[in-house]
């Protein structure tokens, strides 16, 4: 009986842990130097650091201003949501940074599918993986990843 209760508790613990993990993996996020960029979250340079280059891209009819913050190895684009700017895309600009799951520019297609599986949508050279309303897109030229971008659906 005692063993059964222990097994039951372990079972509950495992199930609980995997549920938490599943919860954590609901959307794509990118981590660099202990900074965790979560798509759809509010962006601020006080939280994520001073950019190397900043650009504004206004829409052509007052639909708001997208802002891009370029860092050494990646670029963040924000889009307005009310009075806040939310992270809309994260674009990796060189091979010195990896996705949270360990893929970088220059890796092979085989390595990509080994890491992320085959549940992707392929459009021309783009392989897109989706978690909820977030996407991780790899542009593969030949057999090599040439571009990596995270993005979120906007309403």
């Amino acid at each position: 009986m005692k063993k059964l209760i222990i097994l039951l508790l372990i079972g509950i613990l495992i199930t609980g842990c995997s549920e938490v993990k599943k919860e954590e993996n609901k959307v794509y996020s990118f981590t660099y130097n202990d900074k965790n960029f979560i798509l759809g979250e509010e962006f601020s340079t006080s939280k994520y650091g001073k950019e190397v280059r900043y650009a504004e891209v206004p829409s052509c009819a007052g639909q708001g201003v997208d802002k891009t913050y370029t860092y050494d190895h990646y670029e963040i684009t924000t889009t307005p949501d009310g009075d806040k700017d939310k992270i809309y895309t994260i674009y990796l600009t060189d091979d010195s940074v990896k996705t949270t799951e360990g893929i970088k520019i220059g890796d092979s297609l085989e390595n990509l599918t080994k890491t992320y599986g085959n549940d992707y949508e392929k459009r021309d050279n783009a392989y897109t993986y989706t978690l909820d309303n977030t996407h991780l897109e790899f542009i593969v030229v030949g057999d090599t990843i040439s571009s990596i971008e995270y993005y979120i659906d906007i309403e």
Binding site: A55, V57, T77, T93, D124
Partner: peptide, 14 residues
Amino acid sequence: VTNLPTKKILGSYT
């Protein structure tokens, strides 16, 4: 014109 965003690689240009 000051800074512009990075010119991204596209999955297709066709």
